[in-house]
């Protein structure tokens, strides 16, 4: 017994594994690799076939965008590129660790839309006095105004589950709840429970603007819509390649009434020789 057990593994090692042989044999059964393009837009498609672990034929199609960059390098620049490292940089390992690419994207923050020049916050304050805090800073997560931005919402984790099932109107006021009784995290603190309602409210205050002209920018849309009331967010969809507007954008108003007014006035409004189409944005699919 003992002898056969030793012999077996050595036999296997000498012979190629049956699985490997099979794979090789199957290769010519597969349809050939196909390459389409690159076309005028530089789109290249590669279609390959292979067998997956269940021995089923799988088609793998990959789409590439081929881009050519032409750089005119000066003679001296090319020469300098080949220069030997010197000084402390000779130690290559150290040099590699010195340079790193930031993982976070940094943008040129344009926090003041043009034409508004800082008087906007004041304007919104006066129109919003009934809200108490009356600022543009509205947390889309918990609905608090003037306390923090959405990204810094301290109740981020608490309110998350709410997203999955929209709360019905049976919000029990915290005052009714006896001390010691269990209060779900989303109901803790009266303002917060109201907040989750308000959050849905602000989400609904999103207005979709379509038929925008190609050179519309976020600042333009902001300028157009901020006349109706405080705006928390403007977004204009831009083509990644050309940087021009793709023809639609979204505006979030703080107040629903302002959004309604904007829709009423701006729908059918001629803007940049095009007629705008303004409507409520479709609610996010849950």
């Amino acid at each position: 017994m003992a002898i056969t057990m030793v012999a077996n593994p050595s036999n296997q090692a000498a012979k190629p594994r049956w699985a490997d042989v099979d794979d090789d044999n199957d290769d010519y059964l597969l349809p050939p690799r196909k390459v389409i393009g690159p076309d005028a837009n530089g789109i290249k498609k590669v279609i390959e076939y292979k067998l997956n672990h269940e021995n089923k034929l799988v088609r793998v199609s990959k789409t590439y965008r081929v881009r050519k960059f032409v750089t005119n390098a000066r003679k001296h620049v090319v020469e300098r590129r080949a220069w030997r490292k010197f000084g402390d940089a000779v130690d290559e390992d150290v040099g590699v660790r010195l340079t790193m690419t930031s993982v976070e994207d940094v943008f040129l923050d344009r926090h003041m839309p043009y034409g508004s020049k800082g008087e906007e916050p004041k304007k919104s304050q006066s129109s919003q006095n009934e809200e108490g805090s009356g600022v543009l800073q509205v947390c889309r997560n918990c609905g608090r105004k003037g306390d923090h931005w959405t990204a810094r919402c301290p109740y981020k984790d608490l309110n998350q589950p709410n997203e999955s099932f929209p709360d019905t109107s049976d919000v029990t006021s915290v005052k009714d709840v006896k001390k010691g009784a269990y209060v779900p995290p989303s109901r803790r603190g009266g303002e917060k429970s109201k907040g989750s309602d308000m959050r849905r409210g602000t989400e609904e205050n999103s207005v979709r603007v379509t038929n925008l002209s190609e050179d519309t920018r976020e600042a333009d849309l902001n300028e157009l819509c901020s006349t109706f009331g405080p705006v928390t967010r403007t977004y204009v969809s831009n083509d990644q390649r050309t940087g021009t507007c793709r023809g639609f954008g979204f505006v979030n108003f703080v107040n629903r009434a302002d959004a309604e007014k904007a829709i009423k006035v701006l729908n059918g409004y001629g803007y940049d020789n095009l007629i705008l189409h303004v409507e409520w944005a479709a609610p996010r699919t849950k």
Binding site: W83, K85, F86, G87, A89, G95, T99
Partner: peptide
């Protein structure tokens, strides 16, 4: 004390002037 020169495209250190 040590001025340094870098490649301006990728930020690689070329050398130092000691």
């Amino acid at each position: 004390h040590t001025p340094t020169v870098w490649f301006a495209d990728n930020g690689e250190r070329l050398g130092t002037y000691r």
